[in-house]
């Protein structure tokens, strides 16, 4: 399986420009295809391949957490919980909407929050984090295409961000720090943290909607 991963990684990261126009926007990377197979026919071989690729990344994601109440021993619990959810929910995966990586990341993020909330709370929690992601979307070919472009762009540009912007995004997404916590840790004013996050995201061509421009001014 290691061999397979190596060949996939060598593939050019972005499709040629022509493909952009005739593409059906369906994710056809190896992992998305495998995830569809798990969803459609409970294919155990496909699941084993997904596990071999994602479990090490999920563990890395879990170990990166620096949230209150989180400890390293939870990492394998998270991997387990996420991979079981992947098996159970694969039927609902739509490769047009997101890549397998993104889909699995969102499962992991939601699991991590729920594990933390369960740890910090003795009462029965009335909501799970995935309850917040229930909205079915009326996707159009254009919106799907845009989402695919964001995905490709983020993939290409993440490595080119200035060090400090990369650092802050890692703090927020991987360590799970709020802007306020990051500002304390880095000993930077909150405004500086916010603007670094924004600059980084704008370079990734996220946070571009005009209505947000207005919000940015009002803040």
């Amino acid at each position: 399986m290691e061999k397979v991963r190596a060949t996939v990684d060598k593939k050019p990261q972005s499709a040629p420009k022509v493909a952009f126009f005739k593409s059906t926007e369906k994710r056809d990377d190896k992992w998305s295809t495998l995830l569809v197979e798990v969803g459609e026919s409970q294919d155990r071989r496909a699941f084993a391949e997904l596990f071999a690729h994602f479990a090490p990344l999920l563990k890395s994601f879990a170990q990166a957490s620096r949230q209150d109440g989180w400890f390293p021993g939870l990492a394998e619990d998270l991997v387990q919980e996420v991979m079981i959810k992947v098996w159970q929910k694969a039927g609902g995966y739509n490769p047009q909407k997101a890549s397998a990586t993104t889909w699995i990341y969102t499962v992991a993020r939601n699991c991590r929050i729920d594990m933390l909330r369960r740890k910090c709370n003795t009462q029965h929690l009335p909501l799970e984090n995935e309850d917040f992601w229930h909205e079915p979307d009326e996707e159009t070919p254009v919106s799907l295409l845009r989402q695919k472009r964001t995905e490709d762009h983020v993939k290409q540009s993440l490595g080119q961000l200035p060090r400090e912007q990369n650092e802050i995004l890692r703090k927020v997404y991987l360590e799970g720090k709020s802007h306020a916590e990051a500002s304390q840790e880095l000993d930077l004013p909150l405004g500086t943290v916010k603007s670094r996050v924004r600059l980084g995201l704008q370079k990734l061509q996220i946070l571009v909607a005009p209505e947000f421009r207005e919000e940015l001014l009002n803040d």
Binding site: L58, T101, T102, Y105, K155, L158, I206
Partner: peptide, 8 residues
């Protein structure tokens, strides 16, 4: 979400 996904 793509940012978190790619970072992972």
């Amino acid at each position: 979400d793509e940012v978190g996904s790619q970072l992972m």
